[in-house]
Design a protein around this nucleic acid. Structure first.
Lengths: 151, 151
DNA sequence: TACTTTTGCATCGTGAACGATATAAATATG
DNA sequence: CATATTTATATCGTTCACGATGCAAAAGTA
């Protein structure tokens, strides 16, 4: 068939896109009670690992553009999760730090990864299969991030 | 570490989310010349496989909600790619069909999957690895779509 | 047949993503 | 040291993605 390749069934990207959306959906029951979204949760993960980072570092760790992260941080600031202060050495920088509320949320969120893992195992009956996928995904991400389209 | 699980590196979802975004980014050089976005490309894939489908069928095949697909189709109609007509049997339905322009775009797009495959191989030096990921992703998608969060 | 429920689609509001562009500060260069 | 360039962040416009809600038509039920 001339157009065989154009079938949805043959596409890797469509699966990644769908799997990502549905998996993020699985976070909803855990994130909604905390009043945060998945991208906001990612920002918190970054800051919980290391507090007080410039916007650029956060964006880089999440493979996002600063023009995505800036509004995200503004919403998080409005929600009282982070504070954004001018950098001392480099005044162009905005240093993002956790508020008391942001720090405390770590405790409420610490069980989420285990919950999600359990859920995936329960739903699919598998775990190893997905653990094995991680290095491949990393290779793909590593390869793609150096292309023209990003960076 | 008590919070080890909270580390970004432990997360499958983050990889899926990132890999999906970056892979979609890799479509840009091919889709931009056609004047379409990746989700619009997906809609075209669905319609190229079978023309004249109600909104609901398209949404279902893409695992999207109709309130995402409706505006998408409206933009595609404005761009002259599809036509939306009232259903004859069930007048609530909107039957989406390809225009001449939408049909012709198939020819221009038919090489895209091969281009993307080649690109991934060139970037990562691998292909099998990602082909092997597909059944796992399908299992994950299949499992997640029956959860509370979607349907 | 009258009434209730479901279904198919649309509209609205919010939060991402990101290309393009702007701005000010830091850095490099003549 | 003056000027050009780069860098860090922000703003704007467009397109998703989706929860909540609305509405009319179809289907089910009394």
């Amino acid at each position: 068939m001339e157009y065989e390749q154009l079938k949805l069934d043959n596409q890797l990207c469509f699966r990644l896109y769908t799997a990502a959306r549905l998996t993020i959906g699985a976070y909803h029951p855990y994130l909604d009670p905390l009043g945060i979204t998945y991208p906001q949760y990612l920002v918190l993960l970054v800051l919980w690992e290391q507090d007080k980072q410039p916007v650029n570092d956060i964006a880089h760790k999440l493979f996002l553009e600063t023009n995505t992260v800036t509004p995200l941080l503004q919403r998080m600031e409005k929600a009282g999760l982070v504070k954004r202060t001018k950098g001392k050495e480099d005044t162009r920088q905005r240093i993002v730090s956790l508020t008391k509320k942001g720090i405390e949320m770590r405790e409420q969120a610490k069980h989420i990864p285990d919950c999600l893992s359990d859920e995936i195992i329960q739903i699919t009956g598998e775990e190893e299969e997905f653990v094995r996928m991680i290095p491949s995904l990393d290779k793909l991400i590593e390869g793609l991030k150096r292309t023209t389209y990003n960076k």
